[in-house]
Structures are given as C-alpha cells and as structure tokens.
Design a protein around this nucleic acid. Structure first.
Lengths: 218, 218, 218, 218
DNA sequence: TATGAATGAGAGTTCATTCAT
DNA sequence: TATGAATGAACTCTCATTCAT
C-alpha cells in the first residue's frame, strides 16, 4: 500500500511532519470525528499503534495543526497595521492577506476554524482565545475606520466582523482545488465584497416599505 | 428495513415530535457524529432501543430534520419572485426571508446545512441537489439584477452567491440566543451588507488599482 | 399493507390458524432464528404485540407446528404395518407415504425436522423422542426385511435409516414448487432409490461386469 | 471497510487459525445465526472486539470457512476423473472421496453446505455457484454412466444427484464422533447405497403395480 | 522506532416480550 | 381482542489507546 521507505537515505527520524500532513488531509476530508487514526496511519504507511511514538493522542494531533495556524495569523495582523496608516488600507491589506492565507492553506486553516471545537480543556480555551483575538483585531480595524467616517453608518462593527469572517470561514465547504475559481480570484472577490459591504450604501428599496418585519419564518 | 409505520396520517402520535426535537437539540449542540442516540433517549426519557419505534435509524432522524427544512426553503424562494418585479427587490426579499428563516430556526437549519453531509446514498444526493437549487436560485437573482445594471460590474454571481450564503451559514457558529444581537438585527445587517457587497463600489485603493482584470491564475 | 378485515362476516375470533400458517411460511422461508415475529405479524395484519393473545412465545409457535406434524407421522407408521404382511411391502408403503407426506407438507415438515432443534427443555426432548421413534420404526422395518433375506447383507439397518431419511429430509433445501419435478415424481424416485439401495448389490469394482440391458420404463 | 491486512503471506500470524477453528466449532454447534462472536471470543480467550484484528466481520469468518472448503472439493472432482476411464469407477471414486472428505471435516463442510446460505451479496452468489458446480459434476458422472448403460433406466440423473448428496449432507445432523459408527464405515455405507440406488433394480411389488393409497397426506 | 496484538468502552441496532389503554 | 409504546438484553462492530517484543 503506502511506501514504507523512501528511496532516499535519511528516512528514519522525522516522520512527524509526515504524520501531521496526513492528519491535515484526513481531518479536512472527513472531519476530525469521522477520521480515524487508522486513516492517518494508512497514509503514512505505518501501523496506527506506531503513531503514538510521535503523538500523545488524536487530540494532540489536532492541536498541533491548530497551534501552527495561529502563528501565521499573528504575523498577518502585525503586517496589516504596518502596511499603512489609513485604517481602510489596513483593512484591505488584512482582508487580502488573511484571505490569501486561508485559501492557500485551506486544509489546515479550515481545520483550525471548524474542527478546533473538538479540543478540550486548556487547549480548547487557547484556541478560542486566539479566535477571539482574531475577531477583535478585525473589529478594531473596522471601528477605527468608522471613526474616520470611512464606514457606512449603519454598520455594526462586531456584527460585520462575524459576517465577514463567516463568509471566509465557509469557503472550505465549497472550494475545490480543481473548481471554477482560482484562490486569488476568490480572495479578490472576498476582499472586494467585504469592503463594499462595509463602506457601501445598501440601495434603499423602491417603495417606502422598510425591509424589516418580513418573513415570519416557520 | 422498510418503514413499518403507516405513513400519511397523524399516526405515530405522542413522542415522535419530542424525539425529533431532542435530536435537533443534541445534533446541533454536539454535531451529528458526536451525538449519540443515548443522548437523545436521555432527553426524551426512554431507553435508546425504544427510539426505534419512531425512527428507522440515526440517519433517518437526521434526514427528517433536513427534509423538513427544505420545504420551508422552497416557499421562501417562491415568495421572493412573487414579491416584486424588480430583481433587486426580489433579492432583498429573498435575503431577508432566508435570513429570518435561518435565524428563527437556527438549530434545524444549521443542521440542514452543516450536518447534512453525513447522510448517505440517495438522501445525501437529495440534500445536495436541494442545496444546489438554493444556490442556483440566489445566483439567478443576482444575474437578473446584473443584466439590469443593478449589480457592480466586477461581481461574479456564482462566487458572490457562495460568499453571501457562507456568511449566513456561519452564523450558527457564533450566534447565541442570549447574546448581544437579536435575530432581527442580524438579519438586517446580513441583508444590508449582502446587498451593499453586490451593488457597492469597493473604494479604490489610494495607489494603483489593479483590482480588476480577473486573470485566470494559478 | 396486509388486509385487516376479510370481506366475509365471521372474521373475529379464530385468527390462530392464520397465525400458525403465517409462521409456517416465514419460518420455512427464513429459518426460525432469522424470522421475526414482526414478519409473522405483518403477514397476518396485526401488530406483533397482538400475537401474544394467541401464542405464549415464539417458541410456542414453533412447537405447535412441530406437534401437529407428529400426529400425521404416527398415522403413517400405523398404516404401513397394516398394509401388508411382507416387510418389504411395508417398507415400500412407508417410504412412499412418508415421502408423500413430506413433499405435500414440505414447509411444515421441514420445520419439524430442521428447525425443531431450537426448541428447549421438555419440548425439545419430546420432539427428539418422536424423531427417534420415527427412525426406530424405519429401522425396525429394515431389520425385519433383513431377517427374511430381502435386504442386501452388507446393509447396516441403523446406518441405512439415517441415510435414507437424510436424503428425504434434505429435499426441502432444493425443492421448489415451480421447479422441474412434481412432488409425486420425487416421491417415486425417492422410494425407488431407497429400496434399491437396501436390496441391490452394489456393483463390485474392477470387474467389468457390464450392466445388463433393461427396458426404459418411467 | 476494505481489508487492511496484507494478504498473501503468512502474516496475521498467531491467533487467526485459532479463531477460525473456534468459529468452526461454534458455528457448527449452534448454527451461524445463533452463534455469537462472544462465543468465539470466549473460546479463544480474548475480548470480542479483539477478533476484529483478524476478521472483517462475522460473515467474513463464515466465508473463510466456506471458501476453504471449496478448494478441497475441487481437487476431489479432479481426482475422480483421473482415477479411471470407467464412469462407474469414477462415480465410486468420487462418492468415496467426497464422503471421506465430508466425514473427516464434518464441521467445516457442513457449515459450508448448511450455513453458507447466510452469506450475502457476491459471496452468497459464489458459494451457490460452487454448489451448483458440485451437483453438476455428480450429475455429469451419472449421465455418462447412464449412456454406457450402467445406470438403471428409471433413474433421473438430476433427481438422483439431489437425493444422494442430500443423504450425505444430512449426516451432520446425526453423526457423533463418539457415536456408533466410524467415519469410514459411514463412507462405505454411503457409497455402497448410493451406487446400489443408481444401478440396482428396485424390487417390484408383490401385488400389482400401483403403490396403493399413496398417502394423501394431511 | 516500529510492530501487531489486545483492550475496553461505547456506538447503533434488533427483537421477544410486557402492559396500560 | 387489539393497540402501540416501552423494555432490556444481546448483538455486531469501531476505535483510541496501551504495551510486550
């Protein structure tokens, strides 16, 4: 089945990245819960018992993927504030970078966002904190821009943050590497629409009839 | 194997809705995979084996929730086209209604969108088809509006559809009934931002502005 | 599904034969263990709980089928000894009658022979005793015939009994009502071969001994 | 799902034969359906979950036993045609060999013949095909012998095949290792009686022809 | 390091049986 | 009589994890 020995020489030792890569693939494809360590072991080409030389537990494997993700996210936040003095520019930079990061590391990042909930205890706490930091950062950018009058008045920064990050976070459910859209196209559209949604006037309805109070759904 | 229960009428009286409700709760809280029928049975107050008087399988329980959801979604699509002749108005109606539906039935609907993937066979196919119908409808609305020049020129309908529905679909990950925002607020913000993102010019960056020219990269 | 009420008038009351018939069908088709009372109830058109107004247990249902079978078998034994004074004639009569009985009641009788083992306690004992009586009777016939020199010398009566009854008992595994052979054909072949196997010389090996010319009857 | 075990070599070392042996014992004693993997595990001395290191499913266990059986059966057919040119001799060889094989592997072989029906899908198909091959072979032998005038004229080969194999197949219901008869005795009696039933004249009734009162059973 | 066997807990599912209505 | 809900025990199967070799 899977190759046991690569043709090269220095094969012993660092199997760990290999294992994490395999886990990324399988956690992303099947979801953390549905994925079994057997699946991971099959890809790496070892028995599942052998994985425990490299990991402490299945959750440990998940945590490594998540932990790694956050490092990069921090850099992106730093870079955004350094890119410009204009909040709107910072916003654009941040959205573009975070989008590019997401799209180019879609497996790992979507695990971070979507499967991180299966962590427990401190680790769960930590990942949650990081995500809050994330959101807080974007919200801060929006608020700054709003103070400078660059954001449409009706926009609520925290809510907007959720909606914008949500649309990015959901990309993993429909994106296919061999699909219609290239990552850069998606990133561009995402950035553009996010900015427009923050700055643009929503067209007022033709008739008065305020768009509210409809849809007593179910 | 096949259902033994007589279908159609209001047979299967007492406990069935109770069971489905319990399933909704537990599927939403823990996710379909992590939820056990034991959890459901505990809520209802019966032995897990007793659930099988009402269901054929765990998947059956999931399917019922999903199937129910789609009915309502169809009505909303119908209502949108009947609401107005103006595509933009239809769009607004649709987004508002679908948002309200989502928010007011957030447990069931997010199960439909996020846990439906665990269905198998024909049922999976059916749910997938329905979701495609969903997306196709919104895309159609956007395209119609675009033909009338009501949509910003750089917006790609299919991509926009994904991003907009994604932001809605993700609400379940952060919405809390006892949280800061009332469902209607969220719906309003969602609709407003979605429309703005479709119609609004994204502010051009101070520097160059290579934002267009969608190149087929990668 | 199944009819609840026959068009006739006197439908209440004796559902018991109906239930036994249904059990015969399903026990024969699927085997006692694989058959469920639900299957029986479905055929009869009642809920499985309702069966317990007519039976004490699943095993009880099995027992009734078996008990009924033995009565007829006893008659056949009696009839055989009364049919003639010649042991070989008795043998022929018995084999023919028992074969006809088997073939014409193949479902019930094969349950008796093949599923009776699932009975427990006294009932199992009883059915076993009956079967031993059966075998003993045939063996007795063969022994009597042997004493009169009508049986090939190398034939061991008890062993022959097993082999002959076994070939009959196995008919249920291959017989199909719509198959190639009519019950009477099968009975005739069975009787003929059984008798030949008891009386006939098996051709000795090596020596050529060409088979003598015989007329085509049938 | 699919087998994870490397096939072919003598991997899967220690316990596998033990497990199959235990399964043979318990499937034979209780029947496949009534036997539980718990029973098998108890004999082997492991937890029932541990069995799944060696098997894919309970049905897999059954299939292995059946598959193994067929190999040997094929050899026996081959050997029979090579043993002689005389069809009757081939017949004698075949019956003796198949009888010996049955008796000396009675547990496995009777599982093959009697419990194989519980297989499903392709495996069921395969076992059925094999059994048909079996029967076809014996029938072929009988037909060849008949063409050379070595079989009694009234014998219908296909029917005779069923009856002969049935009597063998049924041995497992009455044979006891510690019983009255040694396997070789049984094989000899079986062969002898089978041949006699094929070649011998059934003695004509003393009285006129019609086997009177032919059992209008029930 | 890696193996492969074993564990143990828990999952979904089936079913004969009971019983209040 | 019949219903339909509920029981409780057993079953097949899965999987993260451990450990002697």
């Amino acid at each position: 089945m899977a190759t046991r020995r690569k043709s090269g020489t220095t094969d012993r030792r660092n199997r760990e990245p290999e294992i994490v890569d395999a886990a990324v693939r399988v956690f992303h494809d099947k979801g953390y819960l549905a994925a079994s360590l057997q699946d991971v072991a099959d890809i790496v080409g070892v028995l599942k018992g052998s994985l425990y030389h490299y990991i402490d537990s299945k959750e440990d494997l998940l945590y490594r993927i998540c932990a790694h993700s956050h490092e990069r996210a921090s850099e992106i936040m730093r870079a955004a504030v350094e890119a410009s003095d204009d909040p709107l520019e910072q916003l654009r930079t941040y959205l573009t970078d975070i989008g590019a990061w997401y799209l180019h590391n879609i497996e790992r990042v979507s695990i971070y966002f979507n499967e991180g909930r299966w962590l427990t205890g401190e680790r769960l706490e930590k990942v949650r904190d990081e995500r809050r930091e994330f959101q807080g950062f974007l919200r801060g950018l929006i608020e700054k821009a709003a103070q400078q009058g660059e954001i449409a008045p009706h926009v609520e920064p925290r809510l907007a943050t959720h909606l914008i990050l949500g649309s990015l976070n959901n990309v993993s459910t429909w994106y296919r590497p061999d699909g219609l859209y290239a990552p850069t196209e998606i990133v561009e559209a995402f950035t553009q629409m996010a900015l427009a949604s923050l700055t643009g006037e929503s067209p007022s309805p033709r008739t008065k009839q305020p768009a509210r109070g409809r849809a007593r759904a179910k």
